[in-house]
Amino acid sequence: MPAAERVIENPVSGERIVIRTAAAETDGKLMEWDLFLAPGGRVPSSHCHPGQVETFTVLEGRLRFRIGLRRVIAGPGDQVRVAANTVHHFANAGRETVHVAVRTEPALNMEELLATAAALGRNQVAAGRRLPHLIDLALFVRDFAAEVRAPVLPPSLVAAALQPVVRLARRFGWDRRYRRARDSGAGRR
């Protein structure tokens, strides 16, 4: 599927993502995407990207950011840049869908991360769960450690805590649900 037609929808966060420029088109240097965030929509948790810079340009609506300790409300025409390794969170600050152009540099596996998160979100909604399965979350954090990390805990501590969970999940086949979600999110069957 051409990048311009790649749409990712996450029912948990209220995100609709349209990939405009995929990593493969830029030798991994960047990914450009449109984010449509429904009223009440928000990124699921505070996070940071260890080696990526994100630039958000609000096209329609209002987006509320928390960047480190700073709070920002961005409206049409406003641009917000989040440096690598900076803890941030964002949410729709209005009653209408917000439309934001996002640029992620370098791209790394951000498209696969977004698609996997959306597939896990669909599973979560279908199962009627308020929270994701902990094993799915552990595998997700491990698989996308280069793209995203928890805001407070040292990465080495997170990796050490996840290692036995990942090992047990593989050994007993508890990772099947996650693998199916990741494969479906990536468009693989």
Rank of each mutant, 00 (worst) to 15 (best):
Ala115Pro: 02
Gln124Lys: 02
Asp27Thr: 09
Arg179Asp: 12
Ala146Asn: 13
Asn123Trp: 06
Glu9Lys: 07
Val98Asp: 00
Arg16Leu: 11
His88Gln: 09
Glu5Tyr: 03
Arg95Lys: 12
Phe140His: 07
Ala138Tyr: 06
Phe140Leu: 15
Arg180Ile: 02
Asn109Ser: 14
Val148Glu: 14
His99Cys: 06
Gly61Pro: 00
Arg180Val: 08
Cys48Thr: 11
Arg167Tyr: 11
Val43Thr: 10
Glu5Lys: 10
Asn92Gln: 09
Ala145Phe: 06
Gly68Asn: 03
Arg129Asp: 10
Met31Phe: 04
Ala24Ile: 09
Phe65Leu: 11
Val158Gln: 03
Val72Tyr: 00
Leu63Gln: 09
Asp27Ala: 15
Ser45Trp: 10
His47Glu: 14
Phe144Val: 01
Ser184Arg: 09
Arg122Gln: 11
Gln124Cys: 07
Arg149Trp: 01
Ile67Trp: 01
Pro76Trp: 03
Ser13Cys: 15
Pro151Gln: 12
Gly94Gln: 01
Gly51Ala: 08
Thr116Trp: 01
Glu105His: 03
Leu168Pro: 06
His99Val: 08
Leu162Gln: 06
Leu153Trp: 10
Asp136His: 07
Ile19Leu: 13
Gly14Pro: 03
Leu59Asn: 05
Phe56Gln: 08
Ala84Tyr: 02
Arg16Tyr: 10
Arg70His: 14
Leu35Phe: 06
Val152Asp: 15
Gly61Asn: 07
Ala159His: 03
Gly61Gln: 04
Leu30Asp: 07
Ala181Met: 02
Pro2Ile: 00
Leu139Asp: 02
Val18Gly: 05
Arg122Ser: 13
Gly40Pro: 01
Gly121Thr: 02
Lys29Val: 10
Asp27Ser: 15
Phe140Ala: 01
Gly14Asp: 06
Asp34Asn: 05
Glu54Ser: 04
Thr116Tyr: 04
Thr86Gln: 14
Ser13Asp: 12
Glu111Arg: 02
Arg129Phe: 08
Pro164Cys: 08
Leu120His: 01
Glu25Lys: 04
Gly41Tyr: 00
Glu112Cys: 05
His89Ala: 12
Gly173Met: 07
Asp143Gly: 01
Leu134Ala: 11
Thr97Met: 11
Arg180Tyr: 05
Gly28Ala: 08
